[in-house]
Design a protein around this nucleic acid. Structure first.
Length: 417
DNA sequence: TCTGGGGTCCTAGGACCC
DNA sequence: TCTGGGGTCCTAGGACCC
């Protein structure tokens, strides 16, 4: 049996942890650059605020209804996510962290008291972290996802849903469209509709081989999983990243080369930081920037360049990223977004170096080590390359950021006596 | 004025090999 | 008359996830 624990409106719930005055009130959290609504408390949903709505379009509605608005505060969310995970480890030795707000647990050998178990998980997370969650329990991950969704939709279930018998999951699957299934979205649904498959149950009772002819192996696995036959296993060890991207929209559109170069430099440095944290080296890099796709004359440039040797040196990666960006840049455009990706990455420890090429110098390693040490102890961005610029007027908008309550000494909440 | 960011996996088709 | 069979690797593009 698998349990899927999914935090309710995770980002909004995180903001409420240190603002209990906002409990029971409408709260929304915006994406980077204050672009979209990415999380809504239940009360905000009740006001008719949809998911992924552009902020500028719904701002009047939010103001009118006194909705609490927050920019994304990832240090806070990441830390609370870790606390949720730590608490869950008391319930099962086998946990997969699927995303920042979702964890799968293996409940092997606990078949008989699953409902009680689910309730305990929910209550403990509220007691320890003040995090409201839904719990779905079923014999496969796909059904556990469905159980979780059901736990949140049907109030009577009180946040916990167990689908441990075929008649139970048949009841649910008959009542939801295929798009309610994990791994089936709009485009797949359109193709299935042509085969007269509309409900999740239609898909569950279809012939996997025939469906595969119309699609791919993923959908065949989904059918098996919907029938209680596990195809997806618990992945306890997070797999190493295969590519590392850092990309952002500009807070103020870039009309000149300078802000583009500064942004590219900053994102190159961030990507290199992540690369070193994973103890990997990069062999190639993807650089791109573009204007708004919502406007006419959409202009987009990109290039993939090889690094001279496998490296994790911020200085080398930044220099090449800047040269590439300068080469791609054409004046006369208002750039909306820029980014870089490290696309070919290899394990630093096991990489076989070229016999005739010395590769990255030890001096480079030492410089990067010092840089990381300072930035880890004094805060990110304490030591940086001047190429990133100092004032950064192009940096993303974050008008409504809450304090980093749990990860920054100066933001620690103060209790008044 | 104003629309996120960071990933993964799969397949088809081309290039190339013996 | 008339041009195999089996395989690998790479890339672009599609689809999906949170």
């Amino acid at each position: 049996m698998f349990a899927l624990v999914d935090c309710n409106s995770f980002y909004a719930s995180c903001e409420q942890v240190f603002r209990p005055d906002l409990r029971g009130k409408p709260v929304v959290v915006l994406s980077n650059n204050d672009g979209f609504v990415v999380a809504r408390s239940r009360e905000a949903k009740a006001l008719g605020i949809g998911d992924l709505q552009p902020f500028f379009k719904i701002e009047p509605l939010l103001r009118r209804n006194n909705v609490a608005i927050f920019s994304s505060n990832y240090p806070l969310y990441g830390d609370l996510s870790n606390r949720v995970m730590t608490t869950l480890k008391n319930f099962s030795p086998h946990i997969e962290v699927y995303s920042i707000d979702e964890m799968f647990l293996s409940l092997h050998g606990m078949q008989n008291k699953t409902l009680q178990h689910g309730q305990e998980i929910k209550h403990r997370l509220w007691d320890h972290v003040r995090m409201p969650v839904g719990v779905g329990i079923a014999p496969t991950k796909t059904l556990a996802k469905m159980a979780n969704r059901t736990a949140k939709k049907i109030r009577k279930l009180d946040g916990v849903c167990i689908l441990d018998q075929p008649y139970k999951w048949e009841w649910v699957l008959r009542r939801v469209p295929v798009t309610a299934i994990w791994g089936v979205a709009r485009r797949m649904a359109a193709r299935l509709a042509k085969l007269n498959i509309e409900s999740a149950w239609d898909l569950a009772s279809a012939n996997p081989r025939i469906i595969r002819g119309h699609s791919n192996i993923c959908l065949e696995r989904i059918i098996e999983e919907l029938n209680g036959r596990p195809c997806l296993s618990l992945e306890e060890l997070p797999s190493a990243k295969k590519q590392i991207y850092c990309t952002r929209s500009f807070g103020k559109k870039a009309r000149e080369l300078q802000p583009v170069l500064e942004a590219i430099s900053l994102y190159a440095a961030r990507a290199a930081d992540k690369l070193r944290a994973q103890k990997y080296l990069a062999l190639a890099m993807h650089i791109f920037f573009h204007t708004s796709p919502f406007k006419s004359n959409f202009h987009s440039v990109s290039d993939i360049v090889k690094l001279p040797y496998p490296t994790d040196d911020t200085r080398l990666i930044t220099a090449l990223a800047r040269d590439t960006a300068a080469r791609l840049y054409r004046p006369g455009h208002e750039f909306l977004k820029a980014g870089i990706g490290l696309t070919e990455i290899v394990d630093k420890k096991h990489y076989q170096f070229d016999l005739l090429h010395p590769g990255q110098s030890e001096k480079s390693d030492r410089v990067m080590k010092v840089m990381d040490k300072i930035n880890n102890s004094e805060g990110r961005g304490t030591l940086f390359l001047a190429a990133q610029g100092v004032r950064k007027p192009w940096y993303m908008r974050q008008q409504f950021t809450s304090p980093q309550y749990t990860t920054k000494w100066s933001d620690l909440p103060v209790i008044k006596a």
